[in-house]
Simulated assay, not measured.
Amino acid sequence: MTPAASTAETAAAKAHEADVGPPPQGARAEQARGTVVPGGRARAARTIIVTGVLTIVALYFLVPVYWVIVAASKTTDDLFGTHGFLFAENIALLSNLSQVLSYDGGVFLRWLGNSLLYAGVGSLIATYLAAAAGYALSKYMFRGRNLIFGLVLGGVLVPGTATALPLFLLFSQLGMVNTYWSVLIPSLVSPFGLFLCRIYADATVDTSLIEAARLDGVGEIRIFHVLGLRIMTPALVTVFLFQLVGIWNNYFLPLVMLTDERLFPITLGLNHWRSQTDRLPEFYELTTGGVLLSIIPLALAMIVLQRFWRGGLTEGAVK
Rank of each mutant, 00 (worst) to 15 (best):
T163W: 06
V205A: 02
A71Q: 12
T277V: 06
T76V: 07
T75W: 09
V57E: 02
V156H: 03
G84E: 11
D260Q: 07
P191H: 15
P281V: 00
N249M: 06
Y140R: 15
T238D: 04
T51K: 04
R43V: 08
F171N: 06
R110K: 13
M176T: 07
N114S: 06
L300E: 09
E30R: 11
I199C: 12
F149E: 01
L300V: 11
F142E: 05
L101G: 01
Y118H: 06
P64E: 09
L298H: 14
V100N: 06
S98V: 11
T35L: 14
A13H: 13
V36G: 14
R28H: 06
T10I: 15
G289V: 08
L313M: 11
P281L: 00
L300P: 14
F192P: 04
I56F: 03
W273M: 02
T55P: 03
L101P: 01
K319G: 05
T238E: 00
E285L: 05
T287G: 01
G154T: 05
T55M: 12
H16Q: 11
L112K: 03
S6P: 04
F224V: 05
L109D: 04
L79M: 14
L153R: 03
A119L: 03
L97Q: 01
T51L: 09
E30C: 09
L167C: 08
T7F: 10
A301G: 15
L229S: 12
A72F: 02
S95Q: 07
V50M: 10
L270H: 01
I69K: 04
G113K: 08
V100W: 04
